[in-house]
């Protein structure tokens, strides 16, 4: 009975946070099989840690820690598997919703991110998820000053990487709104 209740609470937690796991798998998996393996591994690790989970810490922070710890700790095994190219990755990710323009943008985004280091991938993911630097520090354990320096470098890298091929597709008004929204985190 207690086990059933535990399982139900676990399933609820996973369904509420599946997005976090999938994003980590997309960034750190090199093939669809690899992403599935990583997804399963993260689920197993969450299940093992779940009995000790106390609601004191934020659910998403707790999930990000487990997912990133699992992904980064398992680098060795996955680097042995055949490396999939970025166009293949974009194909896997968007096979079901083929839209040429959208796919091109996505492909550029994933290509640029895939060229980042393992740590930079984690930082940029948290940034794109609109996490504050305080939360990033809670997850990664890197000081906020250090994170800001790294994020500026990443922005520069991405700008150099993507700029010649891709122009912003949003209206200036919209850009202004998002810039305002991010003031507190940048």
């Amino acid at each position: 009975m207690a086990q059933d209740q535990l399982q139900q609470r676990f399933l609820q937690l996973v369904s509420e946070n599946t997005g976090i796991i999938q994003k980590v798998c997309r960034l750190y998996g090199h093939s669809s099989e690899d992403m599935q393996d990583l997804f399963q591994e993260i689920i197993i690790q969450i299940w093992k840690a779940f009995p000790k989970f106390r609601s004191e810490s934020k659910q998403s922070t707790w999930m990000y820690r487990i997912a990133l710890n699992t992904a980064i700790s398992n680098l060795r095994k996955r680097q042995r598997s055949p490396h999939i190219t970025v166009p293949d990755l974009a194909l896997i990710l968007s096979a079901e919703h083929f839209d040429h323009e959208k796919d091109e943008k996505r492909q550029l985004l994933y290509e640029a991110i895939s060229r980042l280091s393992e740590l930079e991938k984690a930082i940029v993911m948290l940034y794109l998820e609109e996490k504050s630097y305080e939360e990033m520090e809670e997850i990664l354990g890197i000081g906020q000053g250090n994170l800001r320096v790294k994020m500026n470098r990443i922005k520069e890298k991405l700008r150099k990487d993507i700029h010649p091929q891709f122009q912003p597709a949003v209206s200036p008004g919209k850009k202004l709104v998002t810039a305002e929204k991010n003031k507190d985190i940048s």
Binding site: S15, T18, R26, H97, Y127, E130, H163, K175
Partner: peptide, 27 residues
């Protein structure tokens, strides 16, 4: 390229592509 544009693509991609796994699959 603006980082904000990247952010919008990222959010849109994740919304479209996130697939819910069934409870049975997770178990």
């Amino acid at each position: 390229m603006e980082i904000e544009t990247l952010k919008e693509i990222w959010i849109a991609t994740n919304k479209e592509e996130s697939q819910a796994s069934s409870d049975r699959e997770i178990l």
